[in-house]
């Protein structure tokens, strides 16, 4: 279980200006929940994720995961980055087995390679283990990143626009894969995205965040992720309840973006 308690984050710019990236953000995420976060650019999504991951110290409040206050990165909280976080000097296999190999008391080699093979199979990359990562396409690289995270068996998976760099078709396939993995592993997942459809399809819960100061503007509980595990996502996207929420959320983000633009023109 993840508890985020009254988090605030104020950045100091080099010119001594203060940017309030997050203000009094609180929420609780149960084990096995899939949360997606939407919001206009600069509303503090990455900041929130980085605090939960333990990369950043908030100026106020704390995040507590499984009863422990977050004070630094931990293998219990895995992260999948947008791109560029694979180790290009290692093969696909070495990337995926990196976590288990770096453990304080690593498991026997045979077990690690068995685990690696399992996750490569699961993300559909069997047979690619020996390849250097730079020989893979963008979509395949993101699957390696996913497998690398899962192979380390974290309780919570944080994803910052993991599919942002992919083409529409690959992206849809990856969304299916995420749902399948979520359903099979029961992991708790937080995923940031700029795509409203993606947020609705994947999230059991959805936060729409607003900027300046960054805060949770609205929360939704959504049935589509559960449905999507069995059903075709194209069918869900055509449903009237899906379309209705989609339009509502798009409208909300649009008006926020417009407000930001207006403020910039005045200022």
């Amino acid at each position: 279980m993840l508890e985020v308690k009254d988090l605030s984050m104020v950045y100091q710019t080099p010119k001594k200006e203060e940017v309030s990236a997050l203000l009094n953000v609180s929420f609780t995420l149960e084990k096995g929940e899939f949360l997606t976060i939407l919001g206009p650019s600069g509303c503090g999504k990455t900041t929130l994720l980085n605090i939960i991951a333990g990369f950043l110290q908030p100026t106020q409040g704390e995040a507590v995961f499984d009863g422990e206050s977050v004070s630094g990165p931990s293998p219990q909280r895995g992260m999948v980055f947008q791109q560029g976080a694979l180790f290009e000097w290692m093969s696909v296999e070495k990337n995926v087995s990196f976590g288990p190999r770096m453990a304080d008391r690593p498991k026997p080699d045979a077990e690690i390679s068995e685990n690696t093979r399992y996750w490569l199979d699961t993300v559909g990359l069997s047979g690619f283990g020996g390849k250097p990562v730079y020989e893979l396409s963008g979509g395949m690289q993101q699957r390696v990143a996913l497998a690398r995270c899962l192979a380390n068996d974290p309780g919570l998976i944080l994803m910052d626009e993991p599919l942002g760099a992919l083409d529409a078709l690959t992206r849809e396939k990856m969304q299916g894969l995420l749902l399948k993995l979520w359903n099979e592993t029961g992991k708790t997942i937080i995923l940031i995205t700029h795509s409203v459809e993606e947020a609705l399809i994947l999230g059991e819960r959805l936060f729409v965040m607003a900027p300046r100061p960054g805060r949770i503007e609205k929360e939704y509980r959504l049935p589509f992720a559960e449905q999507g595990v069995a059903d075709d996502s194209r069918k869900i996207k055509a449903q009237s309840d899906f379309v209705q929420i989609r339009e509502e959320v798009i409208g909300m983000i649009w008006s926020m973006e417009e407000e930001i633009m207006g403020r910039q023109e005045e200022g």
Partner: peptide, 22 residues
Amino acid sequence: NIAKVYAAYTLNANKRQILFRI
């Protein structure tokens, strides 16, 4: 890239491993 360092930390790496492997 700081993302690589972050990733390595969440994958059990300690400072020595970050230095020599990343």
